[in-house]
């Protein structure tokens, strides 16, 4: 029986991202003496924070075996609204409003995913991706938009020597972790992702769970937008463009399965940091910028490959046996 081999392979696959991370750190550490410094690590965390926050959001969706391609578009819409219409309003009011916009756009995704049952969320959110990007470009007239000084100053603020972005990232992470692990809602998300039919039989309101995860994802996409704009101050028409790829890659790299039911935010954060670490290392070693996309591509490919292999092994292990072969 190949069960033994399969289990070993599974362990290796689970360990692969961590091994990759270690390898990346060692390689860049050797190549550049600035790489292994506290300052650089802070930079990596700061730069990866918006991706990580959005990836945490998408983790909720992926856990239900769904997907949300519209996160980058939501991010852009949220920031565009902030810059164009909420200019004079203090951030303590403006930011929650932007968060609400994220929830509303996420709710739109959730609504269509539930109503167009049978239509894969991939297609649904692909459509909303274009709708929202189009809306944002319409709003901004394709011109660059700028945020107030009050927002930008947040991007420069540090508390206890830790930048604001990392604090937001940390708070989102801790709350998401608790929600997924310690609340009935979180556990039911896992149940729905594993087997929606069984979940419905167990009395779980599956549509409500699905709706909620898209709202959360939309909200965190808007938060990601805020964190990002506070750092860069201006948003051109490519703001958030194609960011769904590193975001999904971060989650999948961290062990969250595209097939639902497996994974969590710890892995996601790790995945986001890994991707940013690679980028940072490439910058520091003066690699040509033209290979950045290729490197990202390799990472995404590996993440998906690992997920696929892992799923097929789990399927084999879980297949019901006709015969019970007694193992001495």
């Amino acid at each position: 029986m190949q069960v033994g081999e399969n289990r070993t392979t599974l362990l290796l696959l689970n360990a692969a991202p961590w091994v990759a991370f270690l390898a990346v750190v060692v390689v860049f550490g050797v190549l550049s003496d600035r790489f292994l410094t506290i300052q650089n690590f802070m930079n990596i965390l700061t730069q990866s924070s918006h991706i990580a926050i959005m990836a945490i959001g998408i983790t909720f969706v992926l856990l239900t075996a769904g997907i949300d391609l519209s996160v980058g578009a939501i991010m852009y819409v949220a920031v565009a609204v902030l810059a164009l219409f909420l200019g004079g309003i203090p951030v303590v009011i403006a930011f929650p409003l932007v968060g609400l916009i994220g929830v509303a756009l996420g709710a739109m995704n959730g609504y269509f995913v539930i109503k167009l049952r049978g239509q894969h969320p991939f297609i649904v959110t692909l459509a909303t991706l274009f709708i929202l990007r189009g809306a944002a470009i319409f709003l901004t007239d394709t011109r660059m938009v700028f945020v107030e000084e009050s927002v930008m100053s947040l991007g420069r603020t540090s508390y206890f020597g830790v930048p604001w972005a990392i604090w937001v990232f940390a708070v989102v992470f801790v709350i998401a972790w608790i929600v997924l692990r310690e609340t009935p809602f979180g556990r039911q998300i896992y149940a729905v992702g594993q087997d929606p039919t069984a979940a419905a039989k167990a009395g779980i309101n599956v549509p409500r769970i699905l709706f909620s995860v898209y709202c959360i994802c939309g909200f965190l996409a808007a938060v990601g937008g805020l964190v990002s704009i506070a750092q860069v101050a201006a948003a051109s028409s490519t703001f958030g463009f194609q960011i769904e790829f590193p975001v999904i890659a971060a989650a999948v790299l961290g062990g969250t399965s595209l097939f639902g039911g497996r994974g969590g935010v710890v892995g996601t954060v790790f995945g986001a940091v890994l991707i940013q670490t690679v980028q940072s290392g490439l910058v520091m070693t003066n690699a040509t910028p033209y290979i950045y996309p290729l490197v990202t591509a390799v990472i995404i490919f590996l993440a998906v490959l690992i997920d696929g292999l892992r799923t097929s092994i789990l399927d084999t292990l879980g297949r019901r046996k006709i015969r019970v072969e007694e193992i001495a």
């Binding site: 009935p184 556990r187 896992y190 992702g193 594993q194 069984a198 167990a202 009395g203 039911g261 019901r320």
Partner: peptide
């Protein structure tokens, strides 16, 4: 075909309908 969620713990499976 059992109605259990393999990705959850025993206690979570027992209480999944109402924690």
């Amino acid at each position: 075909e059992l109605n259990l969620f393999e990705n959850l713990s025993i206690e979570e499976n027992v209480f999944i309908s109402g924690f």
